[in-house]
């Protein structure tokens, strides 16, 4: 009984101690928490989603960015149009390259921030171009990768090179010779648009398909 009373007094004293010691911290945490929350409302990055994980993917945020840009970016279409149907029996020929209604006229593939992975919606486009290459083994193509201005320049060169490499890898699976394609990583050196916002950045994160003689 005696030990119990003593123990309980200790518990009370200790808990009081801990409470007083921690109360200040709690206040601090809550204030910083609120400020970060505010700032994140308008941020494009995925810091909130990924929390502290260093290896987290940027997919979720990247996709949401795409949809936003899609709605806003009327001046610039970068997704395959309605005619992007796998069953669409279009003419996969050199003539198709100059036909604005042909899927082959679409030659830009966009990427998520700090990612070289191909978004699924671009698979048809890439495969179409690959089929063309297979059809014309003498046809040569450059895959010019680019990055947005964020991050360091040489890292962006490597990132953009990796983007063009991942396009190339998908194409090679469709049959064309790997010598038909050449990859270049330009990094952030050749942006397509000026501007230092999410919209511009998305437009600059790309791989451009360039046929040598067309």
């Amino acid at each position: 009984m005696k030990t119990i009373t003593i123990k309980s007094t200790f518990a009370i004293v200790l808990s009081a101690l801990l409470l007083t010691a921690c109360s200040g911290q709690n206040v601090k945490e809550s204030t910083t928490g609120s400020t970060t929350g505010d700032s994140n409302n308008s941020t494009v990055t995925n810091t909130t989603n990924n929390g502290g994980a260093t290896s987290g993917t940027l997919g979720a945020d990247g996709n949401s960015n795409v949809t936003t840009s899609e709605q806003e970016g009327n001046d610039f279409t970068y997704l395959p149009g309605a005619n992007n149907d796998p069953n669409n029996t279009q003419d996969i020929s050199l003539a198709g390259l100059s036909d604005p209604n042909n899927l082959l006229s679409q030659r830009v593939i966009y990427f998520d921030y700090d990612k070289a992975a191909i978004r699924p919606e671009y698979m048809v486009l890439i495969n179409t171009h690959a089929k063309l290459l297979s059809k014309y083994p003498s046809l040569k193509m450059r895959l010019e990768g680019h990055a947005d201005e964020r991050g360091s320049r040489e890292y962006n060169v490597a990132l953009s090179e990796a983007r063009s490499q991942s396009v190339k890898n998908i194409m090679v699976a469709q049959g064309p010779s790997s010598t038909q394609m050449r990859t270049i990583g330009y990094g952030e050196e050749i942006p397509i648009v000026r501007g230092h916002n999410t919209k511009s950045w998305q437009k600059n994160r790309r791989v451009e398909i360039k046929y040598d003689d067309y």
């Binding site: 290896s55 700090d114 360091s152 040489e154 890292y155």
Partner: peptide
């Protein structure tokens, strides 16, 4: 040097 071997550039 910089490497993203851990998932992000470090």
């Amino acid at each position: 040097f910089t490497s993203n071997r851990g998932g992000s550039p470090q």
